[in-house]
Simulated assay, not measured.
Amino acid sequence: MTAVFDSFSRFYASSIGKKILVALTGLALAGFVLGHMIGNLLVFVGPDAINEYGHMLQHVLHGAGIWLARGGLLLAVVIHIVATIQLTKANREARPDRYGQHKQQVCSKSSRIMIWSGLTILAFIIYHLLHFTVRAGNDYDTYKTTLHGETVHDVYRMVIAGFSWFPAVAFYIIAMVLLCSHLSHGVGSVFQTLGIATDKSEPLFKGIGKAFALLVLIGNCSIPIAIYFFHYGR
């Protein structure tokens, strides 16, 4: 066990190791975002479809599955954020020359934007968990319905109620725009970091990143827009 820990410590201490971890955790989080979006889009199929999906998630491995997934995602988020911050700090410290200082000033402007967008996304994640998972400050726990003769949580009614309030809709859309801006660059960079992309194929992978981000943006934003502006399900 000690040897494994020492090997991981040496791997993480290197910039290559951190970059690989950022890429792999980013890829895992991008996969979650896509899967979460597909599941949420079941709201357009109808109440039974999304309620059955929600019920299934709650009972995978007798209820332990969803907590294992949450724990894994939390670990991926922490590693992704911490490793990215450490890489950024190391890159800034490695630019002592005048040209590097100029480049650092340019990067600082971009990083200030990234910090604010990152904080907004983090705030959204916390709000989203409080809103729909913990269900703090609302009565969503009382939303029940019958599915195949069994009483289950009414996910459909909860989503409709949640996106019938404009501040929630506006915050959600802003967060999705910022998230997809990050995905557009991040997904394309993953393949370069992992050594899959070459100079010739790099434009292709950048295009894949932009297409993926656009797909997520349209898919996720279609739900609150349809509910609030077109009164879907209300």
Score class of each variant (00 low, 15 high):
Y127E: 06
Y127W: 11
H128Q: 10
H128K: 09
H128D: 07
H128I: 06
L129V: 13
L129W: 11
L130A: 14
L130V: 12
H131C: 13
V134C: 00
V134T: 10
V134D: 05
V134K: 01
R135K: 12
R135V: 14
R135T: 12
A136M: 09
G137P: 00
N138S: 15
N138P: 04
N138C: 08
D139S: 08
Y140E: 01
Y143E: 07
Y143M: 10
Y143F: 15
Y143K: 09
G149P: 13
E150K: 10
T151R: 05
T151W: 08
V152Y: 08
H153Q: 15
H153K: 11
D154I: 03
V155D: 10
V155S: 07
Y156D: 11
R157Y: 11
R157G: 13
M158K: 02
M158D: 01
V159K: 05
V159L: 11
I160P: 13
A161K: 14
G162N: 03
S164Y: 10
W165T: 01
W165V: 03
W165M: 02
P167N: 15
A168I: 09
A168M: 10
V169E: 08
V169L: 11
A170E: 03
F171D: 00
F171A: 04
F171W: 06
Y172A: 06
Y172C: 04
Y172I: 00
Y172H: 15
I173P: 11
I174F: 13
I174P: 00
M176D: 00
M176N: 04
V177Q: 01
L178C: 08
L179V: 05
L179N: 00
C180G: 01
C180M: 12
C180P: 00
S181A: 13
S181E: 15
H182P: 03
S184L: 14
S184F: 10
H185N: 07
V187F: 15
G188V: 04
S189R: 13
